[in-house]
Simulated assay, not measured.
Amino acid sequence: MRKYIDASMYRFLIVGIINTIVGTAIMFGLYNFTSASYWFASGMNYFLTSILSYFLNKYYTFQHKGETWRSMIRFTLNIAVSYLIAYGLAKPIVLFLLKDMSLTVQENIAMLVGMILFTFINYFGQRFFAFKK
């Protein structure tokens, strides 16, 4: 595990903080203030922040020198898979565990859990797939 905790992980966390601030505002804003659905609000978050994330992670986090189109395709695939796994798991688990709460509370918590799961899945996908050296 120690070999995975290096400078790229710390840079990934810095980029992640920036993306989290922007993405959280987008996702919870859409869900709570425009009545957007769970999937639309969380999906727009990752669609919009992924553009920023790609460039920051390619050039700053992983300092990837490889072909841009190839890494962009891998990055997009990684984001899609990470998103579907994280949010696909988060919602049913939270709905089950918090079945006595309102749907709005359940889905807000599910989006928060999805963000956490997404971060872990996404980091390893970017490091070992999208921007693999």
Score class of each variant (00 low, 15 high):
Asn78Phe: 12
Trp69Val: 12
Phe40Pro: 06
Arg127His: 07
Leu56Cys: 09
Ile121Cys: 06
Ala25Leu: 09
Arg11Ser: 01
Ala25Gly: 09
Tyr38Cys: 01
Arg74Pro: 07
Leu97Asn: 15
Gly114Leu: 02
Ile79Arg: 10
Trp69Asn: 10
Ser82Glu: 02
Leu95Lys: 15
Thr104Pro: 10
Tyr59Gln: 06
Ser71Thr: 05
Phe55Thr: 08
Phe75Ile: 04
Ile93Leu: 14
Ala25Pro: 03
Asp6Arg: 11
Lys132Val: 08
Phe62His: 00
Ser71Trp: 03
Lys91Glu: 15
Asn78Trp: 09
Ala41Ile: 07
Thr61Cys: 07
Arg127Asp: 01
Gly29Lys: 00
Phe124Asn: 05
Ile116Cys: 06
Met101Ser: 15
Ser50Val: 06
Met115Asp: 04
Tyr59Phe: 13
Arg2Ala: 14
Ala90Pro: 12
Ile73Trp: 07
Gln63Ile: 00
Leu30Met: 10
Met115His: 05
Ala110Lys: 08
Ser82Ala: 11
Gly29Phe: 02
Thr34Arg: 07
Thr68Leu: 11
Ala36Pro: 07
Val105Met: 14
Ala130Leu: 00
Gln63Tyr: 01
Ile14Ala: 03
Phe120Gly: 00
Phe118Lys: 00
Phe47Gly: 12
Ala80Tyr: 08
Thr49Cys: 11
Leu117Ile: 08
Pro92Tyr: 15
Val94Cys: 15
Arg70Thr: 10
Tyr60His: 03
Leu89Glu: 07
Ala90Thr: 12
Thr119Ala: 08
Leu98Ala: 15
Tyr60Val: 06
Glu107His: 04
Ala130Cys: 04
Leu98Asn: 13
Lys133Arg: 11
Tyr83Pro: 05
Ile17Phe: 12
Ser37Phe: 09
Lys91Met: 14
Ala80Lys: 01
Leu30Ala: 08
Phe131Cys: 00
Met115Phe: 12
Tyr46Met: 05
Lys65Asn: 08
Ile5Thr: 08
Phe75Asp: 03
